[in-house]
Amino acid sequence: MKNGRRAFMGKAFGAVAGVGAVASLYAMKKSWDPLPSVRSAGFTTLDMSAYKENELVVEKWRGKPIFVLKKTAAMLAKQTDADKARDVLVNGEHYMVCIGLCTHLGCIPGYRPESSDFLCACHGGMYDFTGMVTKAPPPRGLDIPPFKVDGNKLVLGEEGPEYKKMKETGITL
C-alpha cells in the first residue's frame, strides 16, 4: 500500500515535470526564433527602372548581397533557352537577379563588365552573365532570391508566381 502510494506520487510528479519540461523547451525554442522585427525587415523593394544596361548593382536583402544586372541586347541574343528561364522580366526588360554569394562556400564573386562574367576570388569559380556556372568548384548557378514582380517594382522576400515556377522547375533552390 505504502509503496503503491509512493509510486503514484512519483508518477504524478513525473507527469507534472514532463509537461513542464516540454512546455519550457517549446518556449526556449521559440525564444531563439528570428524576431518579428527581423522577419519584417526581410523584404526589399527595388525600382527596376533605375538600372543601366551591363552595369552590375549590388543591393542588400536580408543582409546578403543581391546582384542586379540589366541585360544588353547583345546578351539577350546570346542566351539559350535555359539561360532565358533564369531571367527576371519587368516591363519587358530582362534582368539577372541573384544572391551574390558563391554557391561553393559563400564568398562574393566580382563582376567583370568587359567580359560580362563573374569570378570568385576565393576558389576560382566562374559564372556567366546569367549566373550559370562556367568553371567549378561551385555546385550550381547563383541562387535566385524569392521575388514578386509588382509593376515597375520588384519585391524581394515575397514569392510571386514567376519565382514559384522557377523553384518548381529546379532553376533555383
Binding site: 525554442k29 531563439w32 526564433d33 528570428p34 524576431l35 527581423v38 526581410g42 536580408r62 543582409g63 546578403k64 533552390l173
Partner: peptide, 23 residues
C-alpha cells in the same frame, strides 16, 4: 538538405547580426 530554417533559427536572423552576436 538545404535546412535553411535551422540556420536561421541558430542565428536568429537571415545572416549573423545582433541576435546572433548576443546569443
Amino acid at each position: 538538405l538545404h535546412a535553411d530554417g535551422i540556420v536561421e533559427w541558430i542565428r536568429g536572423d537571415y545572416v549573423p547580426a545582433q541576435a546572433f552576436l548576443d546569443r
